[in-house]
């Protein structure tokens, strides 16, 4: 008798094995899909929560802005006054340099020397003085004072020009100097 070959049985075995594998893969993919759905729902939830928080913050901001606008005049006054203070601080600094320099030269020259002309260019920080000495001896002292290293250290190079003698025997001379950091340091020390 010929041996029987059961193709159907082997085929069915193969199909059952494939179906079991397919089922496994289907379960895994189902789980992955489920996780993705959960992630999407969580992301959506976080999104809604953040939008709600931002809305709350913006409502608070609106209330604060209303409060700030109601104090607009006070704010304007403070801003304008502070700006004016900044400008005044600059102007005071410029003026103290000039005042300190004039006071300094008045003191070192003494009462025999008269400061006759003053010209101050605030933008370039240049001070010009015309001094008048009552005699040649006083003028000599003035030259000695101006050549003093301490004066040079304070004001740098001092330009001397226009030496004139008038008919009463008085000598006048122009002094030009620039007011820089050294003059400012002197002023600060004096102010303290």
């Amino acid at each position: 008798m010929a041996r029987e070959i059961n193709f159907v049985q082997s085929r069915r075995k193969q199909l059952t094995k494939n179906q079991e594998n397919d089922l496994k893969i289907f379960k895994i993919s189902g789980a992955v899909f489920g996780v993705l759905v959960v992630v999407f729902v969580i992301a959506l939830g976080i999104n809604f929560y953040l939008q709600f928080r931002i809305k709350g913050i913006k409502d608070q901001e609106k209330r604060m802005e209303t409060q700030i606008l109601s104090n607009g005049l006070i704010e304007q006054s403070i801003l304008v006054t502070t700006e004016k203070l900044k400008i005044l601080a600059e102007l005071f600094d410029q003026r103290y340099d000039k005042q300190a320099a004039i006071e300094y030269f008045s003191n070192i020259f003494g009462p025999e020397v008269l400061i006759k002309d003053i010209n101050y260019a605030a933008d370039e920080k240049i001070l010009s003085l015309r001094i008048q000495a009552t005699s040649i001896f006083i003028l000599e002292q003035v030259f000695a004072q101006l050549s003093n290293p301490e004066v040079e250290k304070k004001f740098g190079i001092i330009n001397k020009s226009e030496l004139i003698r008038n008919d009463r025997g008085r000598y006048s001379m122009a002094i030009t100097l620039s007011l820089g950091e050294e003059a400012a340091k002197t002023t600060t020390t004096k102010k303290k």
Binding site: N18, Q19, F26, F33, L36, A43, L44
Partner: peptide, 27 residues
Amino acid sequence: TRRFLVWTGFLGLLSVGIILLSIVPQI
């Protein structure tokens, strides 16, 4: 004979769609 495989493919496509069209824009 392979219906689970077909459904798996369908789920795979759906997952890719969710990732690209929903999850990434949400993030």
